[in-house]
Design a protein around this nucleic acid. Sequence first.
DNA 1: GGCACTTACTTTTGAGGCGAAAGAATCCTG
DNA 2: CAGGATTCTTTCGCCTCAAAAGTAAGTGCC
Lengths: 386, 386
Amino acid sequence: MTPGAASWLPLSPGERSVAIEVLVHGPLSRTEIARRLDLSAGSLTRLTKPLIESGLLVEVPEAGAPAEARQGRPSQPLDVVAESRSFLGFKITEDMVYGVVTTLRSHIVARHDRPLAGHDPALVADLLAEMTADLVRDHPRLAGIGIGVGGLVRDRSTVGESAFLHWRDVPLAALVEERTGLPVVVENDVAALVEAETWFGAGRGLDRFVVLTIGAGIGYGLVLGGSRVPYAEEDRGFGRHWILDPNGPLTPDGERGSAISLLTIPSIRYQIQAATGREYTYEEILALAAAEEPLPARVVAESARALGILVAQISNFVMPQKILLAGEGVGLMEVAGKVVEDTIRSHRHPLAAPVDLETKVSDFHDWARGAAVLAIQVLVLGSADA
Amino acid sequence: MTPGAASWLPLSPGERSVAIEVLVHGPLSRTEIARRLDLSAGSLTRLTKPLIESGLLVEVPEAGAPAEARQGRPSQPLDVVAESRSFLGFKITEDMVYGVVTTLRSHIVARHDRPLAGHDPALVADLLAEMTADLVRDHPRLAGIGIGVGGLVRDRSTVGESAFLHWRDVPLAALVEERTGLPVVVENDVAALVEAETWFGAGRGLDRFVVLTIGAGIGYGLVLGGSRVPYAEEDRGFGRHWILDPNGPLTPDGERGSAISLLTIPSIRYQIQAATGREYTYEEILALAAAEEPLPARVVAESARALGILVAQISNFVMPQKILLAGEGVGLMEVAGKVVEDTIRSHRHPLAAPVDLETKVSDFHDWARGAAVLAIQVLVLGSADA
DNA sequence: GGCACTTACTTTTGAGGCGAAAGAATCCTG
DNA sequence: CAGGATTCTTTCGCCTCAAAAGTAAGTGCC
């Protein structure tokens, strides 16, 4: 796809795996890479030479710890030149577009957000092109654009269905490519976040890894053998039918006691509003719960128990090495983390390995960063998927 | 391990993958193998030649369907000589040892069961050796023995903990090896069944595959990328804390409404007995439920709903291509299969891919067959795991 | 029956990746 | 400064594989 995408030269499989290893796992000496990829030292010399000559890798002086003075010839760490290329990531929400510029290492070096006036595909593409033009001024060497959208995305290029944008079969990648001339990848926002965390975040190097997001909706991503498992119902309402508590609350969305009803921000706000007649933000509700106001405390505790059950179920059946909890709703963990953990424990076998649950406080720029990682992957892998 | 295990010659990785492909997927022509393993036709000639010369593979006349007369030179299917070796599989229960002899293709060619008088390790090993001696008379060329035990097994050789045998750290493989002179593999019974189904059964060729067994207990096995995921709590009471219905029955084992309480045979018998004061077998209860006797019907329906919830949860989180339901308790599906399926559907996203749920009526000889497959794997792979 | 065509398999050849082993570089230790 | 340790490089041969050409064995059509 996207023939304009000047991918990383014609890399041989061996070279590519070396490049990815260095890209993802920071500076590494040749010996260390050989150990990780189970190759001989000789092969490493062979594989790294062209990568260094092409400027993709460089030998860095001595990675941080010269203190650790070992015997023998000092190792010569290799690293990618993180600043050699820039990547653009967008997250489209109902009323905003969040944009970030990242390095090859997926570090955010710039942010740029703009309100979204309408949902016409051409209009959205125009706005993305404008934002790209704004950002490209300070960041030349832009190598690609990644776009994250809530909804079903096909072939990493077409939005098949997006409820909040009212889109069906919009070839967003093509629209933005023709306006910017840059290679564009479009992906479901949760999928993009999962890829980002798998490559550069909590899931680095893990074999079985789960990402769970709570916010306006529920997001679930499963990584097995280092690559994401595609889901048929991808983000067309995850969790609507995950019944966590048959006696749980009934909300406009989702079945009674479903993950949607118990965990999403709109549902929690709805519950409080239905009971009090007043509107509170999610943060206000969490604060009230922390202050032990009875009604919010009960709703939040119920939500926390549901989260515990959900995490326990995932752990029981998938046995991931780590579960990453992200999204705008993770404030729940701060207020009721103990309830969550107790619930997890009571729904797990006492001899089972403890769940490695990591919470990541995240805003919309993290979603955009996730999208940018897709652009990195395309550059590195040549538009194939991991 | 087990140096006596005359494994399949020193097979190169390429040769081994060819051998396994033919072993698992029946007679295959060279072209077909090349297609499946993504190799060139030339490589296939190279790889198959030594396998044929060593007698491991043979060219078979024409596999069954000469009717399908295609144009061109007819293909020359290759096959393993299923009867060239025999394998022995044992399943140890509290009061019986079930034994089977299988071919290389894992077809059962003989059965032999004996009551188990006591649980002393030496006594059990003696019995296994006697049964082996009985069976080896009619089946020479015995290549190895596999033993399945409920409980925790380490290194495929030592029973770390088995509640019903009251064993701790019993080196069962060594005990049987020194009595029989044959290579022995010991494994958890569920794990063995999972391996068998992955190689020769419902899970053949699948990437994500789940085995769920209901019987005296609950068994759960997860296969990802073609190999089984090891669990920390392996068969030390799966399902004890899987709460499927918080309002479910309370039984001596497991938490209220747990998979153990709702699905295992002893718990269902306990529920009926507690309500009626009489003892019924599981089969009797199912028959009464089918005849719409109110109490059994209610208990069985509750059990079926729980199974549906469990299957739906597994599907939601693991997204396996297939779930195999096995064990002595699968009669539930015959009586209440519709309830199970309806429950699954109501706990799944309407757009989610339908669950491929396969029920396998199985007795203890299937467990023994699973153990025999381990012996096959050791022979083929050289005692490594898949 | 002969000729074209199709498909399956074999042989040959050449390129490329890999590891083993030997050698060079560069540090520490005494 | 010698000796050892560790990393990296070089060389060499092996193995694997793909490509291409050749052989085998059938069908279809005249």
